[in-house]
Structure formats: structure tokens, C-alpha cells
Design a protein around this nucleic acid. Structure first.
Lengths: 200, 200
DNA sequence: GTCTATATGAAGATAGAC
DNA sequence: GTCTATCTTCATATAGAC
């Protein structure tokens, strides 16, 4: 069945999200206009409003999809018999996931202040769920005497901040492969929580 | 000698920087208008242009002052007979410096993409000088067998990212004093580079 | 040094034709 | 579903009076 000429609802929606993602990451939410997004997609600005009620919803949609994806993936990838094994799989997952989504990650951290209070609260809830997963691993390790961590809450935030830093410098064509990067960060993470080498 | 009424060049300049700093940190450079800054200072928008040629220069000025201040302070505060001692003083300095300047720090990291290419290059040069100071400490420690670091460049970036994370959660009225926070991060940093406890 | 007024352009969002 | 045209507001920056 032929579509009406100029009608592309099945692909325009994703293309709008892709264009907004790239532009928001590069220039910042506030600095990007709906006209720029439309130009990138190849439609007129007015057409965007068939897909999003406003610019704010476009940002929230991107961030929510990212966080939901992060939460569903982490549940599938993080496992292990010991706290150290679970921490290693968490570190490797976190780096791999974010290396593959630099724009999403950049937005998720940089554009929080451009969310309305309601939307901000919803994203924060999702982020908190993710952090709690890491803190639970650290708490297990401390309880079992496998980790030496002065404060599991701060260690959680410190570890995530350290791991997130990878996206400020990692480039696929650089001197290190993703696996090498994962290994280096796992070494640092393992040492930072005082876990013995080789007990994994 | 009485000044002309309405003439306040000696205080308006700093007040413009203060207002811009606060507003840029809270809402982002692109989302803040010159009118908002002027209103915060208590003048009309046109008056701002007696102090800055344009909005871009205002941002660059804030970032450059911050980085110059960071570099002059770190040289005065970081010292020690051993790499571990120097690393500890670096960690404590970095946290103390940034805890006291949350807005400056936020802007220095979040608004890099809103600098013109020329201004960006100048700020990056300053940032690089700071990172090199930390890397030199790590290299010394590795050379002396005091640290276990798989890659000093990545460890430098990882440590700074971890330390910067403190500004995402620290509040002066929170459960931990600044000295406690410094101690916790120093524990994590020390362990992450594989330095033995007590050799400082 | 600050004001008022303004030039000039672009922003988000909507209406109605096709 | 997309277009063109437009409403309304706001932006940066400048000119010239005081």
C-alpha cells in the first residue's frame, strides 16, 4: 500500500530524536533551535510538532530512553559469585555501555539543569536506581571483608565519576582498545576499593 | 572626591562577573541573556557593554580567571618529600579549592563547548598544565616503586574525574566536614594508585 | 558610566492549506 | 504528515542623550 507523498511518520520520529541528540550534545540544549533540528531532518520546523509537544519533551524523551536502556542493560550484564566479580562486571559494563553512547551520556549529565522540575525528578529517580545497584555491590564487599571502603555512598559516586571520565577522552581510533580501557579502569577501581587482585 | 552620580566603574565590573557566574552556573551560558545579567546587577543591558565587548568575552574571562587562580594556588599548596605526600596534598588541595568555588568549577567543565575555538584552545592549555602536575606526581611514584598505576595518563584523568565528582553532591551543611571529605577521597585515591598506607 | 530607544534578527509555537 | 505563513516574544548589540 503506497503511502501519501510526504508522509513518513514511521521514520521521521526516530530521525528527529537522532538529530536532536547529536545537536544537543554538540551545542547544548539551549543553543539549539527547533529550526536547526528540522533542517537536519529535512523538514520544516512546524512538522516537528507532530512528534513532540514542545522542545522540553524532546529533551526529556532522550534522557528517559537513555536511562531506561541503561537500567535494563545493567540488569542483564552484571553478575558474579563474589562482590569483586560483580564489581568487575559492573565496571566493564558501565564503560562499554557509555563508550558506545557518547552523545546520550553527555546529554544525560550536562542537560539536567534544562529539565523542568518534574522531569528532573523523574530522571533523578532512574539515576538513583542505577547508583544503588553499585552501592549494593560495595556494601556486600564490605560486609564480607572483601573491600576496604571508608564510605560506600561516596565511593559509589566517586567510582561512577571516575568511570564517566572515560568519555572525555576515549576515541575508537585511539591507542587503546575498549577492552584495554576496561582493564585499566578495572585495575584502578579494584585498587580504590581495596580488593585483592586475583580473588575474582 | 565625589563621583558623578550613577558612575560606579570600580564596583560594577566585579558585580557583573558575579552575576554572570551565578546565572551561567545555574541556567547555562546559552540560556542566560544579557538582560538577565543586567537586571541582577541593577543596570540596563546596554551598560554591560562598557565592561565587556560581548557575551563570549564575559564567559572566557570567568573561565580564564578560574584557571589562572587554580594554577597559582596549586603551586603554593602542593608539596611533600615523597610522591605519596605530594599526591595527598594535591588531593586535599583540589577538593578544598573546588568545594569553595562550585559555580566556577561547574562553568569550567560545562561551558567549554560555548567558547570560540580560539578561547577554547587557551583554556585547554591552562587545564593541561594542571593535569600535567598530577601526572608528574604519578610518574614519580611509579618510577620509585611507590605506586602501582597501569597508565599514568588515564590514572590522571580518572583521579581528577573522581575528585571533581565531589561537587555534584557536597553541601557545606551536609553530614561530612570538608576535612572528612578530603580524608575519604584521599583514602580512595591512595588505594587507586596502589600506595601503601602510612608511608606518607 | 548609565540611560532610553532602537536596529536587526531569530526564537518557540500555532493555524490552516494541501 | 508536511508545508507556508505568521504571531509574539525575546535575543545581542549599538547610537546618542545626559
Amino acid at each position: 500500500m503506497a503511502r501519501t507523498a510526504g508522509s513518513h511518520s514511521d521514520i521521521t520520529g526516530p530521525r528527529i530524536r537522532e538529530a536532536a541528540l547529536t545537536l544537543f550534545a554538540r551545542h547544548g540544549f539551549a543553543a539549539v533551535s527547533m529550526r536547526q533540528i528540522a533542517a537536519e531532518v529535512g523538514v520544516q520546523a512546524g512538522a516537528l510538532y507532530n512528534y513532540t509537544p514542545d522542545k522540553q519533551s524532546l529533551l526529556f524523551d532522550l534522557m528517559q530512553r537513555h536511562m531506561e536502556s541503561l537500567l535494563s542493560e545493567v540488569a542483564r550484564h552484571v553478575s558474579g559469585a563474589t562482590p569483586a566479580a560483580r564489581l568487575e562486571s559492573f565496571v566493564r559494563f558501565h564503560i562499554g555501555f557509555h563508550i558506545g553512547r557518547p552523545d546520550e551520556m553527555f546529554i544525560a549529565y550536562m542537560e539536567l539543569r534544562n529539565l523542568t522540575p518534574d522531569n528532573f525528578a523523574r530522571i533523578e529517580t532512574l539515576r538513583r536506581r542505577y547508583e544503588d545497584m553499585l552501592e549494593a555491590i560495595l556494601q556486600d564487599g564490605v560486609a564480607q571483608g572483601a573491600f576496604s571502603v571508608p564510605d560506600t555512598k561516596i565511593a559509589t559516586l566517586g567510582l561512577i565519576a571516575m568511570l564517566n571520565g572515560v568519555n572525555t577522552w576515549y576515541r575508537p581510533e585511539g591507542r587503546l582498545s575498549q577492552t584495554q580501557v576496561e582493564g585499566i579502569y578495572w585495575d584502578m577501581a579494584r585498587q580504590s576499593v581495596g580488593a585483592e587482585q586475583g580473588v575474582v
